[in-house]
C-alpha cells in the first residue's frame, strides 16, 4: 500500500499534492455552492422553509414560472442592452485613449496612470458619486452643466425616469470600464513590433489610417478579443452599480439579472427563484467563457492571418 502510494506520487504526479489544499478549499466554497444552487433551483425554498428538513422537489417549475415572468424577460433584455452599449462605447473610447497615450510625450505615462484611478475606486463609491451627480435638484452637477451649456432646457429627472436612469447607469459603467480597456489595449500596443510600421511606410507608402486598419487592428486582434470578452463577462454580471444607483427601479426599468436574483433571494426571500435566475446568468456566462477559452487555445487561424499579412507587407514588391 505504502509502496504503491509512493509510486503514484513520483515525478510529475507530486503536483497533485501541491494543488490539493487549494482545490479542496475551492470545491468546498465554490463547487459545492454551484451544485447546491442548482439543487436549490429545483426546490421550493423560501424564508419559511429554509430550515425545514424535507424541501419540496418541484422540478423545472421555477424555470417555467420565471420564463413566463415579465420582469425576468425585461431584465435579460436590459442586461444584454446594458452590456452591448457599455462595451461598444468603452471599447471605442478606451482604444482611442490607448492610441493617444501610446504616443511619446512627457506626460503620457503619468497621466495614463492617473486615469486608472477611476477603475480602482470601489464600484459602490463610484455609484454613490454618480447618484449624487445625477440628482435632479439638490447639487445635481450634471444637470447644471448641461443647462449652462444650453444642451438641455429643463433639468432631467435622471434616476427617476426609465430611459434616463438606464443612460445614467451606462455612463457610470463606461467611466469604470474605459481605463480597463485602455490599459489592456496599450499594453497590447507596446508589444507590436515597430519594424512592421517602418517597412509599411517606407516600402508600401502606407499612411497612418491604412497602418491602423491594416496593421494595428489585425495584429492586436488577440488582445482585442480578450478585452471584449473580459468586458462582456464583467459587465454582464454588473451588480453593485445598479443596486446602489437605482436598485433596479424605477419600476424594474433598470433591473438586470444579478439585481433581480438578489431581489428575489434577499428582499422577497424566494431563495429558489433567486437561485434560478442566478443559474440562468451563470449558464450564459459559462458558455461565453468556455467558448472564449477553447477559442484562444485553438487560436491558430487568427495568428495565421496576421502572419500572412506581415509577410505580404514585408515583400519589397510594392516599391514604386
Amino acid at each position: 500500500m505504502n509502496g504503491s502510494r509512493k509510486k503514484f506520487f513520483q515525478h510529475d504526479n507530486i503536483g497533485y499534492l501541491f494543488v490539493l489544499p487549494a482545490l479542496i478549499f475551492m470545491v468546498a466554497l465554490i463547487g459545492y455552492p454551484i451544485i447546491s444552487n442548482f439543487i436549490l433551483s429545483f426546490q421550493d425554498v423560501t424564508a419559511m422553509t429554509m430550515n425545514a428538513a424535507n424541501k419540496d422537489f418541484v422540478g423545472f417549475d421555477n424555470y417555467i414560472k420565471l420564463l413566463n415572468d415579465e420582469v425576468l424577460i425585461k431584465s435579460i433584455f436590459n442586461t444584454i442592452l446594458f452590456t452591448v452599449a457599455c462595451i461598444i462605447v468603452q471599447f471605442v473610447i478606451g482604444f482611442a485613449l490607448a492610441l493617444f497615450f501610446n504616443k511619446k510625450f512627457t506626460f503620457a505615462k503619468p497621466i495614463r496612470g492617473l486615469m486608472m484611478v477611476s477603475w480602482m475606486v470601489p464600484i459602490t463609491i463610484t455609484a454613490l458619486m454618480y447618484k449624487f451627480m445625477f440628482s435632479t435638484n439638490v447639487g445635481g452637477v450634471i444637470n447644471y452643466m448641461l443647462q449652462s451649456l444650453h444642451i438641455i432646457d429643463a433639468p432631467i429627472d435622471w434616476l427617476t425616469s426609465p430611459v434616463s436612469a438606464f443612460v445614467a447607469l451606462v455612463i457610470a459603467n463606461i467611466w469604470i470600464g474605459i481605463p480597463f480597456n485602455m490599459i489592456l489595449l496599450s499594453t497590447g500596443l507596446t508589444t507590436l513590433p515597430k519594424d512592421v510600421y517602418e517597412s509599411s511606410s517606407i516600402d508600401g507608402g502606407a499612411n497612418k489610417i491604412q497602418q491602423f486598419f491594416k496593421i494595428t487592428l489585425p495584429m492586436l486582434r488577440p488582445t482585442i478579443e480578450a478585452v471584449l470578452i473580459l468586458g462582456l463577462i464583467y459587465t454582464f454580471k454588473v451588480f453593485d452599480l445598479v443596486y446602489v444607483m437605482t436598485k433596479g427601479g424605477p419600476s424594474n426599468s433598470t433591473q438586470v439579472l444579478s439585481t433581480y436574483s438578489y431581489k428575489l433571494s434577499f428582499d422577497l426571500f424566494k431563495f429558489s427563484e433567486g437561485a434560478t435566475v442566478a443559474n440562468i446568468l451563470f449558464i450564459i456566462l459559462f458558455v461565453v467563457s468556455l467558448l472564449y477559452i477553447t477559442g484562444t487555445r485553438k487560436g491558430g487561424c487568427l495568428r495565421w492571418k496576421t502572419q500572412k499579412y506581415y509577410t505580404i507587407k514585408a515583400k519589397p514588391a510594392q516599391i514604386e
Binding site: L29, I30, Y32, P33, I34, S36, N37, L40, I233, F236, K237, F239, L257, S258, S261, Y262, S265, F271, G274, A275, V277, A278, N279, L281, F282, L285, F286, S289
Partner: peptide, 10 residues
C-alpha cells in the same frame, strides 16, 4: 468568471 450571485445564496 463566475457571477457571485450563483454562490451567494448557497
Amino acid at each position: 468568471m463566475l457571477p457571485a450571485s450563483v454562490i451567494l445564496t448557497p
